[in-house]
Simulated scan of single mutants.
Amino acid sequence: MLEKLQNQGYQVEVLSHARAILEVDFPEVEIELTEVLEGFRIPVAELIAGGGGEAKGTQRLRKALTDKQWPKFHFNVERKINGKILESQSHEVDHVREFTSGRVALEIEWNNKDPFFDRDLENYKRLHADGAISVGIIITRGTSLHENMKSIVGKFLDTNDIETLDDLTQWGYEPTSRQRATISGLVNRDKDPLSFREAFCRKFVSDKFGEATTHWRKLEDRVHRGVGNPCPLLLVGLPENVVEFD
């Protein structure tokens, strides 16, 4: 499953017979995901830049999926007895592909708080139980990307001769007073002071891409505990080589 992407470093895990379902009933899914992801890149400067809202890389990924008929989808599930509504639930999924034989749902968790995985997996479980979806897909940061984020940020600093926080202004990064104080403290402490490079990488990655965010290990831990089971699942981890240096 997704061998071409795996050869590029993507992590892929298939659970609860998702492989058989996708290969037999939805072969287009593998083709379309490969087409969307094989050329997906994130300029390293986008990792550094501040600002709220959704990351630009995620926006591009969403647009590419939407262009291939994976739009946002709202599910409304009602339970009735003799015409009386006893329970009504609404589920929103970022991307859903509809086929004559069923639906496949997809969520992108680039850098949310890790409880978003619980939300996604439980939604998939309920929607699958109700017959609304056949397979659920989650795309997140893979192990190599998550674990090597400090070295990626460090390479960015080295490549652009960045030696102070002020040097980062042109790249759209504006540290808070707390971040400035922490980095300054690490650099100027009496015992084992850090270089600016080491201090910035440690603080920046901890704040923006810390362990409590959505990444492969957090997702893997949940599915191996049975969260989302028995919904068939396809998990995809973005590798470090999606980050592009100019």
Score class of each variant (00 low, 15 high):
G210H: 05
N160E: 04
Y173V: 00
P71T: 11
E211H: 12
L22N: 06
T100G: 10
E98H: 05
E198F: 01
G185N: 13
D207A: 15
E163T: 15
L37K: 01
R178Y: 08
L65Y: 09
V135W: 07
T214R: 09
V153N: 01
E87C: 07
K155A: 14
V36E: 04
E54W: 02
D130W: 13
R202D: 11
G142A: 02
D166N: 14
V153R: 01
L233H: 13
A212V: 12
K113P: 02
R19N: 05
D118T: 15
R41M: 03
L5M: 07
V36C: 04
V24T: 13
R197N: 00
T213R: 13
V242K: 07
L61C: 12
E46R: 05
T169S: 09
S177L: 14
L65Q: 01
E30K: 04
I21L: 15
L145Q: 09
L168E: 06
G136A: 09
E87P: 02
E92G: 08
L168R: 10
T214P: 10
L22S: 06
E107H: 10
K80F: 02
E174G: 05
V104C: 01
L219P: 02
G57Q: 03
R178T: 12
C201K: 03
E147K: 14
E109T: 01
F245P: 01
F209I: 01
L165Y: 03
H95T: 12
F116Y: 10
I183K: 03
Y124M: 04
R141W: 05
S195H: 04
K68L: 12
F116N: 13
G131M: 04
S177I: 13
Q170W: 06
H17K: 04
E107T: 12
E122A: 08
I137N: 06
K203Q: 14
R41A: 03
G154D: 00
I42S: 04
E240D: 15
A199L: 11
F99I: 08
L168V: 11
S16W: 12
F75V: 10
